[in-house]
Design a protein around this nucleic acid. Structure first.
Ligand SMILES: [Mn+2]
Ligand SMILES: [Mn+2]
Ligand SMILES: [Mn+2]
Ligand SMILES: [Mn+2]
Lengths: 216, 216
DNA sequence: TTATTTTTTTAGATTAGTCTAAATTTTTTA
DNA sequence: TAAAAAATTTAGACTAATCTAAAAAAATAA
């Protein structure tokens, strides 16, 4: 078994390398609110356990066994978030910190039964895909609203910023997962985007548009 | 907030002092599978935090704030056990170790919502009372089967041994929480007890009778 | 009531995870 | 390509929680 700290490092490295190649010491430090020197120590330990590929000064990435552990933790995180929202009626902006704790409950059997209890959901309350018990999930193509042209329509399907202030703002604008929207205008001056949702039109800043993902 | 180790010590002290007065260093050590010297260190720390009353060489008991924390952990332990059995279909002999981990999830709001979700259960799968959100619970009088006279009847309502081997044995004999039983005979030679449950008669040893609690 | 046994505490180490400050390596800039 | 800046690692220290071995106190027995 791995310690709580090790699990958090593996998850952070997974997210930092999801798209590109290697995670740097400083990136890991800032994503875990810790210091670079602490990260270096832990990288050595994880490399000794063959969970990461580590070349000093060159950053790291996960080995297959490191990735397997990371995906297991992400699976637990997202399933607990789903549980908190769907069964315990939490709001989508309240569940992340709780799930950060719950994702470290170790039992595989528990999480598989929870998965079954909830009917094998495929996405968490923020639209992120939930890995199945083998670590597999389908990653459909999402685009930020900021990258879409006028008159296109789509369904809100994810967010890039998981902070509660962003999620609460989206709630207020009625821009939540599953909403169908149409991009009706793009303001040239500041790249604000005007979107129609339901019978309402709202204008969102470039920054918001950048963090709001839709399926076309 | 308190560390995981502190919470486990407080819970252990609570259980050791539930009936009598003080818990000794050695009792705590053996109930936590640790060494007496480690316990002494922790007792000093808990006394500094005013969670226990500690006089060197005299054992300890909980202060009101220590007891409040202990009851909060016991509430969480028993609610999670209930959840695991009632919602995720675990057996009553499989849930204790999982709950030992889950009882340390810190959120009060989470546990109160879980309580509501399950309909405010009053007892866990082993018959132990679940403290409410104020730490209160009603403790009805239970008697071990070994202390009951012939021809008395009662309802199985608790166990003194929570080990899975004992719980599995009870399952096999169909002696589970809620079963109505009648004591039909007591063997004088070894104090075995013959009980009738449903239409079946089973004989249980003195040791089993001692660990099986009924409400008369 | 003195000697023996048991219990508890103290002393000194160890491990995981973290930190600051200093040294080293890599990258960028001039 | 040499100097400056940025990133990373090393050195040394700290805390929480644990351990073993030794010392001290309390309980028990002779
Ligand atoms: Mn989350
Ligand atoms: Mn999420
Ligand atoms: Mn239990
Ligand atoms: Mn129980």
């Amino acid at each position: 078994m791995n310690t709580l700290a090790e699990e958090n490092y593996l998850k952070a490295i997974y997210h930092l390398t999801e798209n590109d190649g290697n995670a740097s010491t400083n990136q890991i430090a800032s994503s875990l609110n810790t210091k670079a020197s602490s990260v270096t120590d832990m990288l050595k330990k994880l490399a000794d356990k063959a969970l990461i590929n580590y070349t000093p000064y060159q950053g790291v990435n996960l080995t297959p066994s490191g990735e397997k552990i990371a995906l297991g933790i992400i699976r637990k995180h997202r399933l607990w978030e789903y549980f908190l929202v769907e069964k315990l009626n939490f709001k989508w902006d309240q569940v992340h910190d709780l799930a950060e704790e719950m994702e470290h409950i170790s039992s595989e059997e528990l999480i598989d039964r929870l998965d079954q209890f909830m009917g094998y959901p495929t996405h968490d309350p923020h639209g992120d895909p939930i890995p199945d018990c083998n670590g597999r999930f389908n990653t459909h193509e999402l685009k930020p609203v900021s990258a879409v042209t006028i008159n296109q329509c789509g369904v809100i399907s994810g967010v890039r910023d998981h902070s509660s202030s962003f999620l609460q703002y989206l709630d207020k604008q009625q821009l939540t997962i599953g909403c169908k929207i149409i991009i009706t205008d793009i303001i040239e001056y500041d790249h604000s985007v005007v979107v129609q949702t339901g019978n309402k039109e709202v204008q969102i800043s470039r920054e918001v548009a950048n963090n709001l993902l839709i399926a076309l």
